[in-house]
Design a protein around this nucleic acid. Structure first.
Lengths: 341, 341
DNA sequence: CAAGAGAAAGTTAACGCTAACCCAAAGGGA
DNA sequence: TCCCTTTGGGTTAGCGTTAACTTTCTCTTG
């Protein structure tokens, strides 16, 4: 069979010519559309198999205007939080025939923009974006809306953009962590807070509100800027330990900060959790293997990914622009040793 | 400007009609090809900007037969090892206009196959695959070769497939780890080995060879099957500690196993590294934050990703099928506390 | 001043597939 | 018998680009 040896890829009309029928008929058989006699159908299927025919999705996409590809734009998919979300998204859309193009922008807003443009040029059917929150994003997303590109924002909301959003309830993260520490008997609860973007401020607010509600007051220096890395968390905790009074519990912006903070505490000769309880946020999957297994607030990455993917598929399928939905996923305390006292 | 409000996407011929020139001329201007007068060029560029024209990559791909997309097929891109590789690949191909479709198969060979087919149907320009090593892969990759789809294997080689491969030198991993332990004064060196696939066997071989070369003999029970997870590593170490003689150094198949093993050692009242030194492999990026910071063998994920991507791009660009290159990246010891004695 | 050589376009025909419509033959009911 | 419906296809015309020619001028140049 010479055609098997040929480098030429097999097309619909190759099959059609072989059988002396029209390409459209072949196409119909292969897509199970229209009325085709059993005889013709079987002939086509047989020949397609013999030739090992594979449809050309590029050509198909050109005419159907669907690529069955969605774009995922993240700050960094190496980060376990985003990697988990990416995986859940891929898992959710795969059964419906979609693939995912993952791109990342390292928190660089201009890269985010060019990547988004590029994905749109590739005619992805939709986008899921954890946006840098740079000021001009509003215009970018409005442009996407006007171009009718379906998209869903995750993790980081953008004020004023009429688009669906899925993320964790960050105030609830702060509330849960703080409430947990109070329940464990802590009264002098500090907070190593993250960078001054909305997200970290919400976690702080949950912390502050919960303290107020429980009529607990703490000195102003109990709230320390601690960045988002283990190193910065380590330094922040050192600074906190130099202050006049010492906390008996610390809620950290995220797990790396908590890990750094724990290190600083242990180095200072303090016991965790006996002297100071520590709670992180994020539930990175190695929390269990740490020096002191870390109590943390799980951000429900699987739920975020699945909901975002479903929302996007819904939008893609809809005739008219669907209304924007904001979904706040409820976080959950995962208790480990760092808060057991 | 009514056309800005219209949902219709702007095409080349929209611009052409507006300016009363041919679509091909517009295409030439936008691609910087052929001879075009400055006047026409400027007119086209101006109009394109006004209309916010974006080329349709699907149409372009259909005629150029290039999608500028490469497929990446991994067992699990949540695993830091693969996530790092994926990132480096994306980083390497991005400057040349490529995007990456990431897919994963959870070690399920049939899923691997269907995903590979699906990526080929989408006409990716090439594939990078960390294959499950199921027996029928040989046929699968031969088929790819005959279909002229450029691809590069990473991490897990397949015997008998004429394709480029990039991975770490696993025997060297075993050699380096063992040599390091010997240098640290260990003489009773055990090995918690991984699953019976080629990869783990090579690490074991590096271990065994190095012991032999140093004329060190160890009892047979010093080599224990330990799976590839922290839990299985924990259990394996417990088993090892029940045996008649105790090791003073352990080379673990990978970092999770090493973490589990360390936990078992500490629970048994032994000190790490004073009583038993531990070396892992993989250099997961939280190794530093562990109970005992872990000495490990870095697998050079960045180098693997970059080399694989370069090899693939070379193949894509080549007229004739390039010859298959096997690249073994040289691993490196990262010394931390778990082996400092 | 005829012939040749560029410069600056335009024409034609794909790429591989599908949407939308059309048509012939066979069957069926009154 | 006539008309209508159903079955099983076929025809046509794109989708938005680009590759490969071809055409039409305008200069040179000997």
């Amino acid at each position: 069979m010479w055609y098997r040896l040929s480098a030429m890829t097999v097309t619909l009309s190759d099959i059609a010519k072989d059988l002396n029928i029209s390409a459209v008929t072949v196409s119909k058989v292969l897509r199970n559309k229209g009325r085709i006699s059993t005889r013709t159908r079987n002939l086509v299927l047989k020949r397609a198999k013999e030739l090992d025919y594979r449809p050309n999705w590029v050509a198909r996409s050109l005419v159907t205007r669907r690529t069955f590809t969605i774009g995922l734009l993240l700050p960094d998919f190496t980060h376990p939080f985003f990697a988990d979300i990416a995986k859940t998204i891929a898992e959710t859309v795969r059964p419906r025939g979609y693939h995912v193009i993952i791109s990342y922008f390292e928190e660089d807003p201009s890269l985010e923009r060019s990547e988004a443009d590029s994905l749109v040029a590739r005619r992805v059917d939709g986008l899921i974006i954890a946006s840098s929150q740079s000021p001009d994003r509003l215009e970018m997303f409005e442009q996407m809306r006007s171009r009718q590109v379906p998209f869903v924002l995750i993790d980081r909301p953008i004020e004023g953009v009429r688009a669906s959003f899925v993320g964790v309830d960050n105030e609830a993260v702060g509330r849960l962590a703080t409430k947990h520490l109070i329940e464990k008997g802590c009264r002098k609860i500090a907070h190593l807070r993250g960078p001054k973007i909305g997200l970290a401020t919400k976690r702080w607010k949950g912390y502050a509100d919960t303290l107020k509600k429980s009529k607990i007051t703490v000195p102003a220096w109990f709230v320390v800027d601690a960045g988002f890395q283990d190193k910065t968390g380590y330094l922040a905790m050192k600074k906190l330990l130099e202050s006049p009074s010492r906390p008996d519990g610390v809620f950290c912006y995220n797990d790396p900060v908590a890990i750094g903070a724990t290190k600083a505490l242990l180095e200072a000769g303090l016991r965790v959790p006996e002297d100071v309880a520590v709670v992180g946020a994020g539930n990175v999957h190695y929390s269990d293997a740490l020096a002191v297994p870390l109590t943390t607030i799980d951000q429900k990455t699987r739920e975020i990914g699945a909901r975002a993917a479903e929302l996007l598929l819904e939008q893609i399928g809809a005739k008219r622009a669907a209304r924007a939905e904001k979904i706040l996923v409820v976080p959950e305390v995962v208790v480990r040793r760092s808060s057991q006292r």
